[in-house]
Simulated assay, not measured.
Amino acid sequence: MICCVSAVILALIFLFIIIFDKVYRKVGMILVVNSCLAEFIFGIYLLAVTLFTFHNDLKQIYFYDSFCLITAYIGYMSIGLQNYSYLLQAIYRYILIVNPLGLFYQSVKFQVFLISFTWICCIIYPIPLVFTGQIKYLVDDQLCQIPPGFSFVTIFNAFYIYLFPMISIVLIYLKMVRYVREMSKHVTPVNRLFHAQRELKMIRRIISLVSILIALGLPYQTLIIVSFFKSAPKYHFRIVFIFINASLVFVLIAILEITEPLKTSLMRRINGRATNVVRTVA
């Protein structure tokens, strides 16, 4: 619960700073806003699930209502939004290196189109899961999820919202590394090579952020794989969600660390308040 509240507060702080300091005017920052908003929704979902589980455990309630299904829907949607938001950032950096003259693909309109497209896909995707009864109430874990086990739905779900965006980001990074190395071997204008190396450094930071998601999401993927061969252990989702809750806080800290405009704005506000306090005391 502490991790969930901390994550929601951090995401709100980042969004307010970006909006009030008007650092969202650049395309790269629009993509960061998309990631922060996705993390905020994901944090709200995790907090709702935690409170629902805590309440049912405390009252010894062993049945669910529509709230459980709604949170499950929001959960699958927000996980997709989170992972695809980082894929969009990687794609944007790739475009800047490989096609620096493609102004249309770097434009705000095109990037907003991609953001809107991912939102539509992530919003629509969980609807069939809810209305076809794929999402079940798990009594021991006190939440609604797709039961782990060998099935098309389980495999497709893991691939669609987790494996595909994660693998795509890694592949984009490897291709960018290869492209920059090829540039360094040929006669390339110094400013273009410097620009490519800078964007490669940015996507390397995104990879470090994604590595947090992969590392702390490993228990969930391990649970899915193990469930193909034998029954999942009791309270499996409770254990898995501990890592997921912690990952959200670490991811938001990583966003702050790799986003220089956001970090600069936050430090300026902190230092400005500290200066005002010193002057008042003096």
Rank of each mutant, 00 (worst) to 15 (best):
Y125W: 05
Y137D: 13
L223Q: 13
T154W: 10
Q145R: 13
A196R: 05
T222W: 11
V153H: 12
L218N: 09
Y137A: 14
I155F: 13
I167P: 07
P128F: 00
S151T: 07
I127H: 04
G217E: 00
A158H: 06
M166N: 10
I207G: 00
T132K: 11
S211W: 02
L193Q: 06
L200W: 01
L163S: 06
F156V: 08
R178E: 14
I172F: 06
Q142V: 11
R198Y: 07
Y220E: 10
I212G: 04
S208I: 00
G133A: 03
D140A: 14
Q145N: 13
T154G: 14
L193N: 00
K136N: 13
I146P: 12
Q197Y: 10
S184M: 01
K175G: 07
L193W: 03
V153C: 15
R205L: 13
R198F: 11
I214W: 04
I161L: 14
L213V: 01
L200G: 04
V177E: 07
G133K: 03
V180A: 02
V180P: 01
L129Q: 00
D141W: 12
Y220P: 13
L216Y: 05
F152R: 09
L174M: 11
L129Y: 03
I203Q: 08
Q142N: 09
A196P: 13
T132P: 12
L209Q: 01
Q145T: 15
K201Y: 06
E182L: 08
I214R: 01
Y160K: 06
P128I: 02
Y179F: 02
I127K: 03
F194A: 15
M166S: 12
L171C: 09
P219Q: 02
P126K: 00
G133F: 04
L216Q: 01
